[in-house]
Simulated assay, not measured.
Amino acid sequence: MTRPYRSVLYIPGSKERALEKARGLAADAIIFDLEDAVAPEEKVAARATLARFLAEVDYAPRARIVRINGFDTDWGRADAAAFAAHPGVEAILVPKVNGPADLDAVAAVAGEKPLWAMMETAAGMLNAAAIAAHTRLAGMVMGTNDLAKELGCRSRADRMPLMAGLGMCLLAARAHGRVIVDGVFNAFRDEAGLAAECAQGRDMGFDGKTLIHPAQVEIANAAFAPSEAEVDLARRQIAAFNAAQAQGQGVAVLDGRIVENLHVVSAQAVLARAEAIRLLEAGVQAFGVQRIAVGAE
């Protein structure tokens, strides 16, 4: 059963209040950020604060990922070493991955922890297939803000300037069986805009979306979950195909459309995803989920 990554929320590793509130949020995964969200003078203290919180607070069943600083900074290696054997951390997210060598460098310090790659540079886009093929890689995160900055492209609601990079990374992730989540939507008070961008990412095939505010979680969770209509169709496709097979036929017809084995495989994936979401939400609910309104701190 595939683990859901519908909503992947960034939490600053230096903010104790945010770290405390994160335990009650309905995000599928949390990226505890030591990079962009932490000022240089706070980097060392943030590392210690985050290590303490992850040791004392149980954020399960959410996926727990730590984004370290790059190895070209004064803090990256110490970040990786600090969380290499930390029991509260499931994976390490490596910023600005240009190629497999960047993952090799972190893997040498990060023990057996799975790695995730921030895909946010032009070189990273061109090397997406090689990055996705890395044996230690578990997932990819689109860093659309940094990518847009490097490309020098204009901001558009349809994200057309970013489509080449998004598509290349998505193809690479799917070719190698990696999780891949879409980039952030910056205007966190624009619920309609977020919903539209989530729908675009879901239609492309992304597993979920990275988020910058708790108020965005509910919209992302809804967008990247199978709808009731999709679940109903999946069940009916499987039933129709099984009935056809029982009659010695290789295909079925449902609602005027052919149902073949490949459709059944997709239908089974929809049902498995729906069940995985149900189980995760039941686990998160046990912690007392907070609903954060737009405009709340």
Rank of each mutant, 00 (worst) to 15 (best):
R3K: 01
P4G: 10
P4V: 11
S7I: 00
E20Q: 13
K21C: 04
A22E: 08
R23T: 03
L25F: 08
D33A: 03
D36E: 09
A39K: 10
E41W: 13
E41V: 10
E42G: 10
K43V: 04
K43M: 07
A46L: 02
L50E: 14
L50G: 14
A51I: 05
F53L: 08
F53H: 09
F53K: 08
F53G: 13
A60K: 15
A60F: 11
R62M: 09
N69F: 05
F71T: 15
T73E: 03
T73N: 09
D74G: 09
W75R: 05
G76K: 06
R77K: 07
A80C: 06
G88L: 00
G88W: 06
E90Q: 11
V94S: 13
P95D: 10
P95N: 11
G99F: 06
A101P: 07
D102V: 01
A107H: 09
A108H: 02
W116P: 04
A117N: 00
M118L: 15
A122G: 02
A123H: 12
G124Q: 08
G124A: 08
A128Y: 08
A130N: 06
I131E: 05
A132R: 06
A132M: 00
H134S: 08
T135H: 06
R136I: 11
T144F: 07
T144S: 11
D146Y: 01
L147S: 00
L147V: 04
L151W: 11
G152R: 04
G152A: 04
S155R: 11
M160E: 14
A164M: 14
A164T: 06
G165S: 12
G167V: 03
M168P: 07
M168I: 08
L170S: 12
L171H: 10
A172Y: 04
A172F: 04
V179A: 05
D182R: 09
F188K: 00
F188H: 02
R189F: 14
D190I: 05
E191R: 13
E191N: 13
G193R: 03
A195N: 02
A195E: 15
E197S: 15
Q200F: 11
D203S: 15
G205W: 00
K209S: 02
N221V: 06
A223R: 03
P226T: 12
R235Q: 14
Q237S: 01
I238H: 05
Q245K: 12
G248T: 02
L254H: 08
E260D: 13
E260K: 12
V265C: 00
S266Y: 14
S266G: 14
L271Y: 06
A274Q: 09
R278A: 15
L279Y: 02
L279R: 15
E281A: 03
V284N: 02
F287N: 14
G288Q: 00
I292Y: 12
A293D: 12
V294E: 08
V294P: 15
